[in-house]
Design a protein around this nucleic acid. Structure first.
Lengths: 195, 195
DNA sequence: CCTACCGATCGGTAGG
DNA sequence: CCTACCGATCGGTAGG
């Protein structure tokens, strides 16, 4: 007796291929015929496994949203500096673990149809609030400069999110080295204060 | 006798409206019928003024590329720190002056057809190289920490580029204040070193 | 998973 | 700037 609804292997395969396709061509420019061809079947056959093109996008976006929230929930640091460092590292690692899905998440979410779009934006705001709060705490505690919270949050998140554009597992820097250098750059700056 | 080829007002109007449309729906999801409707004419009538949908995208992307290069060419600072500060401020100001066109530039360039796409990517690399070189100079001079050049360049540019997502002329921070805080955050970091 | 097909919409042209 | 229209392609369904 199977109580948990499982995703069939074929469905997973379709979703995975769709993720690759959406990433490379964008959601709107990706056709179901492109997707079917990549899988070696007819377009009509896709609909035995999936409901619609939109549903695939929905799944990608909301699964990634969950991954980002999970990353934050694991953080058990107390001081603002350590919290922010941990958040930067965890967020970056979600991107490295799901390079295609996070790329779609970042660039294609706006093709979500209502009410999913509104729900998605609410989740994003909620996530951003964690960073704003942490920055606020750091300013109050005297650890951070008194800088506009939203500007600081946007700067930090955009820097991490942009890694999906250039990070390659085969690059010379390891995942941990990039996470460290990102934290270092964002928290301590590029300037050399020892001189 | 008119030697310089001028863009007719109607053509400009079409391109401006297309920029707004491409920004809000994305290039692929924007139809020429959408564009015509926004202008109160029939889709077929657009082609008296413009050659194709692709040509409009091409113009937007390459005009903005020129704007960004112009911003850099004006910089006459000598020290790496001042050069970088000036570059950040100038780059951000191009975004504030062309909020719609830069949004399309950032998100829709990948819908350029060859050979324009390859040409565009070459321009982008060339532009990025200016930042990499400046960072390299700063490291050599001992002004900057010894951090991966490409990572630093990507972090800086992504932070500035992302401003198009949240900057509003009606916000509480002025253009100069944002430029200052961005430079401050990227060069000196969020951390409060005075404590 | 296929064949056959639907109505809708696409970018663009002909000709005025 | 319009009417009329082209061939191509779209997401998706019916029925097996």
């Amino acid at each position: 007796m199977q109580l948990v609804e499982r995703t069939s292997p074929r469905k997973q395969q379709i979703e995975k291929q769709a993720t690759v396709l959406f990433k490379s061509k964008g959601y709107a420019a990706s056709s179901m015929r492109d997707l079917a061809q990549a899988l070696g079947i007819e377009a009509a056959s896709l609909y035995s496994h999936i409901r619609s093109k939109q549903q695939i996008l929905h799944k990608i976006c909301f699964e990634m949203a969950r991954e980002f929230f999970k990353a934050i929930h694991k953080i058990d640091e107390i001081t603002p500096v350590l919290k922010l460092q941990a958040a930067i590292a965890s967020h970056f690692k979600v991107i490295t673990r799901h390079p295609n899905a996070t790329a779609v998440f970042f660039t294609e979410w706006r093709h979500l149809e209502e009410p999913a779009l509104t729900e998605f934006l609410a989740l994003r705001s909620q996530y951003e609030q964690y960073y704003i709060d942490t920055i606020q705490q750091g300013i109050t505690a005297g650890n951070f400069k008194n800088i506009d919270h939203k500007l600081a949050m946007m700067t930090i998140l955009s820097a991490i999110n942009w890694t999906h554009q250039w990070y390659r597992p085969t690059g010379k820097l390891s995942v941990d080295e990039i996470a460290d250098q990102l934290s270092q750059l964002l928290i301590n700056g590029l300037g050399n204060t020892s001189k």
